[in-house]
Design a binder for these strands. Sequence first.
DNA 1: TGTTAGCACTCCTTTTGATTGAGTGCTAAC
DNA 2: GTTAGCACTCAATCAAAAGGAGTGCTAACA
Lengths: 362, 362
Amino acid sequence: MSRDGELDERKLMILKAVIEDYIESFEPVGSRTVAKKYDMGLSSATIRNEMADLEEMGYLCQPHTSAGRVPSSKGYRVYVDKMLAPVAENPKLAGAVVSLLEGKIVEYHKLIKAAAEIISEMTQYTAIGMTKPKEQFIIKAMQIVPVDLNHVLAVVVAENNVTKSAMVKIDGEALKPDMIISLSGVLNDLFSGRPAESISIMMINEVVKLSGVSRNIVLPIIDAIIDCVKQCEHGELYTEGAANLLKFPEFDDIDKAREFIDLIQDKDALKKIAKGSDGEKTGLVVTIGGENGENGLDDYSVVSASYNIDGECIGTISVLGPTRMDYSKVISSLEYMQKMIEKKAKEEGKDNSAENKKGDSE
Amino acid sequence: MSRDGELDERKLMILKAVIEDYIESFEPVGSRTVAKKYDMGLSSATIRNEMADLEEMGYLCQPHTSAGRVPSSKGYRVYVDKMLAPVAENPKLAGAVVSLLEGKIVEYHKLIKAAAEIISEMTQYTAIGMTKPKEQFIIKAMQIVPVDLNHVLAVVVAENNVTKSAMVKIDGEALKPDMIISLSGVLNDLFSGRPAESISIMMINEVVKLSGVSRNIVLPIIDAIIDCVKQCEHGELYTEGAANLLKFPEFDDIDKAREFIDLIQDKDALKKIAKGSDGEKTGLVVTIGGENGENGLDDYSVVSASYNIDGECIGTISVLGPTRMDYSKVISSLEYMQKMIEKKAKEEGKDNSAENKKGDSE
DNA sequence: TGTTAGCACTCCTTTTGATTGAGTGCTAAC
DNA sequence: GTTAGCACTCAATCAAAAGGAGTGCTAACA
């Protein structure tokens, strides 16, 4: 063992071999296996000694005396931080991302969901997409669409292009199209460009006065609008590929499987998981096993990427997998997705400002 | 045994006891258990003889010689058809349905989904909600909402109040509100009240001519509208409480659990399951075990209710559970939900026609 | 003739004990 | 510092034994 407990070259090699073998096989790795498979010119006895050292140092564990070694969280940590092999670009992923981004980016919610789907499909782990709730935002547009004699549709578009609509049924009075158009105009003038929190049921008198439409009709419509606005504020949570994990031998034990099923349905727990990368401006956050406290995640690792567009975090995509997940693959997939989406968003941002200028000066 | 292979009173009693015990315990039921628990004044030996008869007649099976009896599909069938005890109304369910229906029914999709959620919650089985795809329908309303200099929102409302919207990004030209309003008017005039299939990209020339808006802008908007229309046609499939089933001891075997997970992700299989009640005007359809052919559903039963409003089937809600499900509970829950929703829809229908008349004559 | 007590028999389930084998730690020789 | 060799540990596997739930059959009984 090196004097100061630092890992020398050889120990790193052996640690890496153990981890990669374990990631592949999910079986405790013995010294003989390492000596044979990862030909490093050492006998199993030597490797055995080194492995004993690695265990003493906390990088490996032993399920029981006569078993091979298994990486500890600390072991995975140095593996992730120092030993990750760069991964060849995955053409399937690249293809999926291209077709994801071939249209325009309009709604972040849908983008995050679709991206999470791709990530889960590519990694075969579970992907959790989360969009950030907006506390303060501007209503960009609002419209009341006449549908029939008893129904109108209230449409609200928020600052980030999140769109919500609600069908409103009006009883008692028949609706006339010109009435709705007038009302729609008034509402649009009153609310568009205004911060969402300024909208309240209190404005009903003003609306009635300005539009000349009866209170009975305006009330349910404003109700619906407020409902839409509230929905715009919500962050969304998307869980993709939850069933993927259950295929892994980790979950041959039905209790573990049921535990996971409970976890995956617990929205609060998922939000906590997805928040792992919060505050982080760029780069991924890797949380291994129970590293971050008693959250019942001892057997899982999470890799989170946050998406920053225009200097603002619009959401995150996290991969949830077993601690022995294929970190290289997960990290490279998430990094690639992040890079491509942020790049595209930047391009579109530029286009927009250019066009807007052109539009303004016309 | 009675002469003609018919089930006499006593056999029915014993069959019922076996089935109900098995539904509760998921353990093969022995003659001693029946004699003791369902005090019917007979010794276990007599019951044993009767059970042997019931097996010979195909109502019961024996996993192996020295085990108790288990109901066969045929056994469940007579149980469901002839022996179901009427169930006391469930106040929890009633409460949930009341709050589900306290608002107006506007969108069937959302209603079916919410109702399926309640059913799955109440029964603790898996509920599958399906709305019927519309092959032919009328566009009730259409509108283009100006959002900002580069975006408009296309909104389409279908006959059944299904609403779809798509954000459209316009490059190259700045949008002016009056342009959009004019375009929206033209589109609304052209498409509203028209059958969906009449809308095609071919109409672009007409739109350009009538609205005076440039082709570059009209094209992506019509594209978006066609997209929305296509989405309106789709039937939706909602799976609620899929994880519920995994709690049952049926799935202690991880292979069975994984099989179920595959099943529940297979949209085509689910559609087939949910179609069980197709064509049926009213009443529920109960499919027990593999009754209906080789669909890999041997261990499951399905109870389906279809929802008919205005003489048209708008969708179905099915409960998927183990063959030994609590049929009484499932059937009564589904019947109650069906009754309440159809009743409410009828009421609203009446209201509407009354109001529409009033509106027309004004 | 239908019912029931009694008993031998079946066969799954659980327990127990022996065996196997992978892997270790230690020691001694190189 | 490395390695061959060996005793030791302990989970996993397997077979045999014990236990037990439930049956079918027979004979006696009302």
